[in-house]
């Protein structure tokens, strides 16, 4: 496949963009990828391991060295505990809480497969968790976060069913709630 930007060189980077739950795939050559505007990700192409390494792996930069796409995925590494995606595949076990964020995209489908769901329901920590030990103002925030989680899963469902109008409505609601959440902070 040719690079979608220059249409000259072979595309060896697949860049997946997920915006509001909608996935778009881009196929680029490494040259064009370096020049493309990835917003705040742009820096990663220059910086060093681990963050730079992690994201460049996510973008599949290693494919440049003639490795397969799978190999690229296997080199995604959690910057906190250095668990690689390949370690995860081997042991089916995460190394630290941050792994859930790092491997979210790679893993969420699998988690859904084994658990039949990818959204937590039920008990939440009644103390602490990012907001000190005071209980004040927490319940409002908790409620907002819970509704966002719920809407997020509804959004995904709508997308899977190809009900795009419904999905757009959910997306707007999520955006609104997120803004309210920010104001709350």
């Amino acid at each position: 496949m040719l690079c979608e930007k220059c249409k000259i060189r072979e595309a060896n980077i697949r860049y997946t963009e997920v915006v509001g739950g909608v996935r778009t795939e881009h196929n680029l050559c490494s040259h064009c990828a370096r020049e493309m505007d990835f917003g705040h990700y742009a820096a990663v192409f220059d910086t060093d391991y681990p963050i730079g390494r992690l994201l460049s792996d996510l973008f599949g930069l290693d494919a440049e060295q003639g490795e397969s796409e799978e190999a690229g995925l296997e080199q995604v590494v959690c910057p906190t505990c250095h668990t690689a995606y390949s370690d995860f595949v081997k042991d089916s076990r995460f190394g630290c809480p941050d792994c859930y964020r790092v491997f979210d995209l790679l893993m969420s489908e699998n988690i859904k497969k084994i658990q039949g769901s990818d959204t937590h329901k039920g008990k939440r920590p009644r103390f602490g968790h990012d907001e000190g030990r005071e209980a004040s103002g927490k319940s409002e925030k908790e409620k907002l976060a819970a509704s966002i989680g719920l809407l997020d899963s509804k959004l995904k469902e709508a997308l899977a069913e190809e009900e795009y109008e419904q999905a757009a409505a959910y997306r707007d609601q999520i955006r609104e709630l997120k803004e309210r959440l920010k104001e709350n902070e």
């Binding site: 076990r93 995460f94 809480p97 859930y100 658990q115 990818d118 937590h120 939440r124 997020d152």
Partner: peptide, 22 residues
């Protein structure tokens, strides 16, 4: 006494994804 690792979407975080959530 201790802050738990908790994720808005995945709930209580655990070493194995088969325990995550509750």
């Amino acid at each position: 006494r201790f802050d738990y690792a908790f994720h808005e979407k995945y709930g209580y975080l655990t070493a194995y994804p088969t325990n995550v959530g509750t």
